[in-house]
């Protein structure tokens, strides 16, 4: 338990820092809302190496922290919608065992964007925002692939590290 809490603290800090990096270096492609989603890397790693509950709290804590520090209540609602939908879909995808880390990451990226745009449609009350959907599906897919590659590498190495440490402790 103590070890898990330690991991959890570390991962939360990491996700927080990743969000900050993205906040400092926004990718501007003409359409608002496109980003790599580095923080999702941490959530995926938590999902695979810790468990579902920890990944959930990690994600929510990160969004609240980022919203309170670099964002505003409005951006927090968008992040929360995207983050929760993305997490739920990723959990289902992982449980279904149909996809590898790559597929889970892609689904996470795409549904993060879908969650945000759905909230935006309700807030702004314009369905014409759905015009952005194709762009956001594509950008979510690309981001998902990149994060998926990184996650797969990280999970492989971290698993070894955790196991090695586990044997050392015993």
């Amino acid at each position: 338990m103590a070890k898990k809490v330690a991991y959890m603290g570390m991962l939360t800090a990491l996700a927080f820092v990743f969000s900050y990096i993205e906040f400092l270096l926004p990718i501007n492609l003409g359409v608002p809302g496109i980003k790599l989603g580095l923080a999702n890397l941490v959530v995926i790693v938590a999902l695979y190496l810790l468990d579902v509950r920890w990944a959930c709290s990690l994600s929510v804590v990160r969004i609240l922290l980022v919203g309170l520090t670099f964002g505003n209540p409005a951006s927090m609602i968008y992040s929360l919608a995207g983050g929760i939908l993305s997490l739920v879909i990723m959990i289902i995808a992982k449980k279904g065992k149909l996809f590898s880390v790559m597929g889970v990451s892609i689904l996470g990226g795409v549904f993060h964007n879908i969650g945000q745009i759905v909230v935006a449609v309700f807030v702004v009350e314009t369905t014409s925002l759905l015009y952005y959907l194709p762009v956001l599906i594509l950008s979510g897919t690309i981001a998902g692939v990149l994060i998926g590659i990184l996650s797969a590498i990280l999970i492989r190495h971290l698993k070894k590290a955790i196991q090695a440490e586990g044997t050392k402790c015993e």
Binding site: L98, G103, I106, P134, V135, I137, L138, T141
Partner: peptide, 24 residues
């Protein structure tokens, strides 16, 4: 990377392209 991942990737790209076509 599983076969399903590739299928998912292809499906999403097709969906996005279809969406672009539909919007224009």
């Amino acid at each position: 990377m599983k076969k399903n991942d590739v299928i998912l990737l292809a499906a999403l790209i097709v969906a996005a392209l279809a969406g672009f076509g539909g919007v224009s």
